[in-house]
Design a protein around this nucleic acid. Sequence first.
DNA 1: ATCTTTACTTTTTTCGAGATTTGCGTGAAT
DNA 2: ATTCACGCAAATCTCGAAAAAAGTAAAGAT
Lengths: 228, 228
Amino acid sequence: MGIELEPDKQQSTSASVYEDMRSRLVVGRFKAGERLRSEVLREHYGCSASTIREVLFRLSCDGLVDFVDQKGFRVPHVTRDDLREVAEIRIMLESEGAARSIANGDINWEAGLTAAHHKLRHIEHKLRTTGQIKTNIEVWCAAEWEFHQNLISACGSNLLKEMHRSVYDRFRLHLLTLLTDYGFRERAIAEHEAILKAALARDPDLCAEKIRIHLMKNLEEPFVDAAE
Amino acid sequence: MGIELEPDKQQSTSASVYEDMRSRLVVGRFKAGERLRSEVLREHYGCSASTIREVLFRLSCDGLVDFVDQKGFRVPHVTRDDLREVAEIRIMLESEGAARSIANGDINWEAGLTAAHHKLRHIEHKLRTTGQIKTNIEVWCAAEWEFHQNLISACGSNLLKEMHRSVYDRFRLHLLTLLTDYGFRERAIAEHEAILKAALARDPDLCAEKIRIHLMKNLEEPFVDAAE
DNA sequence: ATCTTTACTTTTTTCGAGATTTGCGTGAAT
DNA sequence: ATTCACGCAAATCTCGAAAAAAGTAAAGAT
């Protein structure tokens, strides 16, 4: 049980292993609290334990895996409080980034944001109609990220963008491990639209409020039983 | 059998090298843009190149060193814009943390903050009197960190504290490489006192304003000539 | 029966060498 | 004189094994 990984015959390098592990984590391929043994991962990726160790260290810096000295790595076992903390920080960063984008963004920012929302809207309606959330969760994740990234893309601060990326991924990882619905809710469709409208209306305070509503709604969803 | 005590035996392990490198970076022992060759560091710490590489990776995740694939590590060569970005983020995090501490903090928070300020005040007056900034910069750094850490210590969010720690160190590293005065200014004494008073007066907005003033003043200081 | 000691197994951490890649200087051709 | 190609030197990256530490289980002592 635990790690189910398809064999990767390509020559796995440090960067590729990092990207693959990251995407797998954020999409919920690992179980919370699961130990990440270097030997198992080494076998799957076809590289040495040193490379695995290096990748896991980078992921631990991103907050995507836990590291304890002399005890190895494991997928963080998150609590509701952890999720709330991450949500609060993401609200702060994304509201700030959106406000700056609203102040600085030109027509290209508006165009990019609108395009990202259009794609997101498309996949979300598809999800709502078909109800096949699990099979389309990855493409939805990508579209959702695109939209929120575009929202702050004109903020003018690379550091703010980097931190937002980091916190966004942590938020997603926490959602996937804590919730039963993989992070997608029908209400999110209207919430995304409200954020878009506030941004295009150049109203930073309203936009911040819509972001807060959007993220906080996730905390009210049904939680998986944390039986251990 | 007797107790085995080998003081200062060069038993450099991964964790100790990481801590040492980090403190050296934050205190300005390396020059901006300097290459961090694993062979040189390996010799200094008496460990293998792999251990050095691992430590440098962790530091790059913290944003304290730059890493480029296949090109190695180097001390980031920062610009005024980088410093401004870091300052803005730190203002955001520290203001938020202070506001939450003001809302949540009890008498213990007040006591700890007051104690930290007392120590900081002591060393700062000593620095102003003797003028020996360079020799005492490390102890001042520690005291300054203690104060700002205590300011947000009652915020109730571990994530916020971790991110603040990270950004604080980056801010300090940038200051030391960009400025001529090692980050200490006489005006900082009054600024720290203003922050303390606003915090004890439980005025989050005033506190945020004083934090902004304190950090922004650093951007006006004399810069080292960035001739490149 | 409970706790401590001890030997063994598993996992993590470190190491040094070999493979790979980059950087730079030399030299020939246009 | 400039450009391009080639090759040597230096550094990075990867690997598998050895060393160290932690976890585990059984035997012995209180």
